[in-house]
Simulated assay, not measured.
Amino acid sequence: MADWGTPRSSGPRDWALVERFLLEDLEERRRARRWRWARRVLFIALFAFLAWKLGSSATVSPGAFGPHTAVIQVDGQIAADLPANADSLIDALGTAFKTAEAKAVVLRINSPGGSPVQADEVYREIRRLRAKHPDKPLYAVIGDMGASGAYYIAAAADRIYVNPSSLVGSIGVIMPGFGVPELLRKLGVEDRTLTAGEHKNLLSPTRAVDPVEREHVQGVLDAVHRQFIAAVKQGRGERLRVNQDTFSGYFWSGEQAIALGLADEVGSLQSVARDVVKQETLVDYTLLPSPVDAVLRRLSAETARGLGAGLRQALGLEQTATLR
């Protein structure tokens, strides 16, 4: 007679069956996740390919527009890692000057300036291209602002057009800095910077300025300023009316800039194309990341993350916290 009141204990075989069931369920879940990630990766790769094909098929030769005015935007800060960088601007200039249908090149400038190196490289390339293509003029049209490094570039143009309210000039060089040694001392902060080289830590904000170091840095800034001044004088020539403030770092309105010889006339992109170049068709040669490029970059990152996750799961290398 069975004893219904006494519970039966599970034997080793019962636990083995439970363990096997759990392991099979876990493996099934892993297979499902792997296929899910594989589908995502394939979808992203397909979308990236289609976007690439769309971008490549949409490319049109500038010459297809017929006779036109080539436009190159110098917008925002001039720096190697920003849209207004020397490499992109020089590439765009080269294409515009080589295109026979581009009857003139217009730099549409709205920039506070930036890197003197980047500005000088563009300035020199403009001078080279103008010498190589003497029949193709280059004009600069300054919008809200054409200051410092942006004016450096504009100075290479055949003529500079401005709005009466544009901000123009700022022919100077600056190296911002500050010092907080007394504040750090009151806060109990100790500077433990180590250097190899007597002046490697020059202009450190944690200590007073060394007069010798100040003189050295000022000499560097003065040398860059002299180069800037020489470029403006070379570009503007006899049109420039030099006075004691011309190269002081002051900026002026467009109307004042014309009176000082820093600019030539009032004009806009449209008026220059219409009345000066006499080609109202505008073709933008600016090299900027296209929306397709941006999508591809994002998709590339997603693809890499998806492939990595898929490989980890396929190999059973789930991310877990570990103690080392």
Rank of each mutant, 00 (worst) to 15 (best):
Thr6His: 09
Trp15Val: 07
Val18Ser: 09
Glu27Ser: 09
Glu28Ser: 14
Glu28Asn: 14
Ala32Glu: 10
Ala32Ser: 13
Trp35Met: 15
Trp37Leu: 14
Ile44Gly: 07
Ala45Gly: 13
Thr59Arg: 08
Ser61Ala: 10
Gly63Tyr: 05
His68Leu: 01
Gln73Gly: 05
Leu82Ala: 12
Leu82Thr: 14
Ala84Gln: 07
Ala86Gly: 00
Ser88Ile: 01
Ser88His: 04
Asp91Met: 03
Leu93His: 00
Phe97Glu: 00
Phe97Asp: 06
Ala104Glu: 07
Val105Tyr: 15
Ser111Val: 12
Pro112Leu: 08
Pro112Trp: 01
Gly114Asn: 02
Val117Trp: 07
Ala119Ile: 00
Tyr123Trp: 10
Arg127Val: 14
Leu129Glu: 07
Ala131Cys: 05
Ala131Thr: 10
His133Ile: 09
Tyr151Thr: 09
Asp158Phe: 03
Ser166Arg: 01
Ser166Trp: 04
Ser170Met: 11
Gly172Pro: 02
Pro176Glu: 10
Gly179Tyr: 10
Pro181Lys: 09
Glu190Ile: 10
Thr193Pro: 02
Leu194Thr: 05
Glu198Phe: 01
Lys200Ile: 10
Pro205Gln: 00
Thr206Ser: 06
Arg207Trp: 05
Asp210Glu: 00
Arg214Phe: 12
His216Arg: 14
Val217Asn: 01
Val220Phe: 11
Gln227Ser: 15
Gln227Pro: 05
Gln227Met: 12
Gly235Val: 04
Arg236Gln: 04
Asn243Cys: 00
Phe247Leu: 03
Gln256Val: 03
Val266His: 06
Gly267Thr: 05
Ser268Gly: 00
Leu282His: 11
Val283Gly: 11
Val283Asn: 08
Asp284Glu: 12
Leu288Arg: 15
Pro289Ile: 08
Glu302Cys: 04
Thr303Pro: 00
Gly306Tyr: 00
Gly308Ser: 08
Leu311Arg: 07
Leu315His: 10
Leu317Gln: 00
Gln319Leu: 13
Thr320Val: 15
